[in-house]
Every structure is written in structure tokens, then in C-alpha cells.
Nucleic acid binder design. Structure first.
Lengths: 188, 188
DNA sequence: GGTAGTAGCCTAGTATCCCTAGGCAGAAAA
DNA sequence: TTTTCTGCCTAGGGATACTAGGCTACTACC
């Protein structure tokens, strides 16, 4: 019988695209098998189980986002770098809502340690070089930045800003201004 | 046959408690029916479907959190109010991870409009009275605050802070300091 | 207090999903 | 060419969501 040429990589990519189209919660092993014209049982030669599949999508998304952010950050410093990071982050989440949702599942510690999440942390810390913050303020600032980005994008996606007419883009710009201001003038 | 006395309210409350114990993704109609010693088909007289159940839990959680925040806020102003709001918010999320997760599902616009989400927005805006911000800065600041709170809590819950030894509590305190500083000195 | 109506639960059944066991054929290795 | 093994298959078990239709205990009304 004809072989469909399924591999774990192709499955992961297809699952990620499916997630962006129909939402991560609707990405099922069965749906993925249909997409490849294959029986669902066949997929278990490539992935351990449904959870494994979701983890793979999460790792893919983390790596893609880290690449995007890295190239956005190249040659920039200070507020310029902050805005570039944030813009790349938000754009990725907008373009790839399913992948972004996948990133939110909690990975077990060793998987997380091996993921591109580490690169994110390093890049966020790199931005702060323009702001001259010493530890532990630096860690606190990294966490605040990440919280702001993730929180904003997450609220925007679930419609948390719908009830006020003000455009989300404008609020985003001003939020980054505020973040820059507080990083420049970190309270003692 | 003995009646179990199931109502939509009791179902919602039990679902919320179940969510806090085993995680929102594991709250199923079937599990809930088992909890009441009833067949799953019977629940459909009280709830429309599984999604309806999750929405009810989300609305319950929003209302509970609004109550908590409201009483935390009573008689406070300025940074005091900011910290009280934030602390109540984070404490609720910690005590009720399942309910907090339920709050993240996106409600359709009219359901959202009728929810306690509106009260949250009003209370957040009330905090800003201590900071003398005019529109549209006020809206931007509300969104930034909410983003920071939600982002921080969300990252903390999914283990985003695990890879650095710095305690999350300390980062939280310093993040609130920073938020207070930037609200006090909002960039033009 | 009998009787009609309804509310609350039931059984039965369909469809979908996840996952395991075991078989066969085409591709790769010896 | 023969052997091995990989990639797909069928078959099947168990769980879930939900619908249709039936029986019974409570309620309300005459």
C-alpha cells in the first residue's frame, strides 16, 4: 500500500497549522490522521500520544518565536530593542494563535530546560543591558516585561479589550512607552 | 427513585471545585455526573452542554474574584489600593487555579458584557483615580495593569519562573513597585 | 384526597476520540 | 536474492458528549 510519508516533524508542523486554523483545543490525533489520509492508529508510530503531540507543537512554536525575536533584535539596543522584541512577540501571537496557545501548556522541567524558552529568557535579559539594572532587579524586570507582553497578548486574544473603543494597537504602543520609562527609572 | 437534587447552581459550584482539584481540562460532564451519583444524560436537563458548563464556571469565578477585589479595595487609595487589588487577584488565582483557568475561555460578547468582568474594569479604573490620569492614558494604564497581573499570574502558574532562583513573591512586590512608579509618572 | 401535569432521573443508542495489539506489504539492508 | 524492519493496516476496548424516549416521584389543582 502507498506510504503517506508521515514523520514526527511533518505531523508537528501540520498540527501547528491546524491549531492556527481551528484552535489548539480542536487539534486531535484523529483530525491529524484524516489530514494525512491515514488511520489514526498509524500516527502512534511517530508520536507517543496526544500530549506528546501538543508538547512538540509547543516546542516548535517556542523555537520559531525565538528565531523571530532574535532577528528582530539584531543590531538594536535600548528602547529600540524593547519595541522590536515586543512587536515581534505580539505579531507572532497574532499570526499564529494556535501555536501561541500551544506554548502555554506547562512542560515538565527538563523539557522546558531543553526548550527555546531559555533563549527567550536570555534575549529578554539582553534587552536590559541597555537599562543598566543589577540583580535581583534585572530578574524582576525580566519577569515584569514577560508578564506584560504575555498578559497583553493573552487578554487581547480572549477579547478582554473589546468593551472599550480605544484601539489595542495604541494601548500597546503606550504600554511599551511606560515599560521603557519604568525600566529607565527602576524604583529603588 | 431517590432524587439527587441537582441544579445548575450546584453543578456549577461542583464543577468549579473539581476544576481546582483536578484541573479545568479534566472537568467532564461524565465526571460531574459521577460526583452526583447520577447518569451523565441527566445533567443535560440543567446545562445545555459541556461548553455551557464551562461558561457558567467562568462567570462564577469572575463574580467571586470581583467580590474579593471589591472588599480588598474598600477604604484604600493610591498605591495601597493597587497592592490590595493585585494581592487579592493573585491570591485568588493561587487558591483557585481551576476557576482561574476557566476565566480565560473567551465568552461571546453579550455574555461578557453581562459578566462581572465589567466590575473588574470599573475597579481597575477606580484605582487610577489616585494617579490622576486622563483619557486615553487611563484606558491604556488599565490595560497595562490588567496585562501585568494576568501575565504574571499566568506565567507563574505554568512554571515560567522556575528556571531562576529568585522568589516569585519578591518579583511580584517589585513589579508592583514598578507599576506604581510608572503610574505616578506616566510618560507623555 | 384523588388526579393531572411536570420535573428529574433513567436506559438505550450514536458518534467521536484515544490508544493497544497484532498482521501484512513494500522498502531497505545483507 | 533473501532477510529484516518500517509503515501502514484492521480490529477492538474504553471514555466521552450528546439525543431520544420512557418511567416515576413530586406538585398543584379541583
Amino acid at each position: 500500500m502507498a506510504r503517506a510519508g508521515v514523520t514526527a516533524e511533518r505531523l508537528t508542523l501540520a498540527a501547528a497549522e491546524l491549531a492556527d486554523e481551528i484552535g489548539m483545543e480542536n487539534v486531535t490525533v484523529a483530525a491529524l490522521a484524516r489530514h494525512f489520509g491515514v488511520k489514526d492508529a498509524s500516527l502512534y508510530f511517530h508520536i507517543r500520544n496526544g500530549h506528546d503531540l501538543r508538547v512538540r507543537v509547543a516546542l516548535l512554536a517556542l523555537a520559531e518565536l525565538a528565531d523571530r525575536v532574535a532577528s528582530a533584535l539584531a543590531g538594536r539596543a535600548g528602547k529600540d530593542a524593547l519595541v522590536a522584541f515586543a512587536t515581534a512577540y505580539r505579531a507572532y501571537a497574532k499570526e499564529h494563535p494556535g501555536r501561541y496557545a500551544a506554548m502555554q501548556i506547562d512542560l515538565d522541567p527538563e523539557t522546558a530546560a531543553a526548550s527555546a524558552g531559555i533563549r527567550h529568557a536570555e534575549m529578554t535579559r539582553a534587552i536590559l543591558r541597555g537599562y543598566r539594572l543589577a540583580e535581583p532587579d534585572q530578574t524582576d524586570a525580566v519577569r515584569m516585561m514577560h508578564s506584560t507582553f504575555h498578559g497583553f497578548v493573552s487578554l487581547e486574544r480572549t477579547g478582554g479589550f473589546r468593551h472599550t473603543p480605544r484601539s489595542a494597537d495604541d494601548s500597546w504602543t503606550r504600554t511599551l512607552d511606560a515599560l521603557d520609562a519604568v525600566l529607565s527609572n527602576w524604583p529603588a
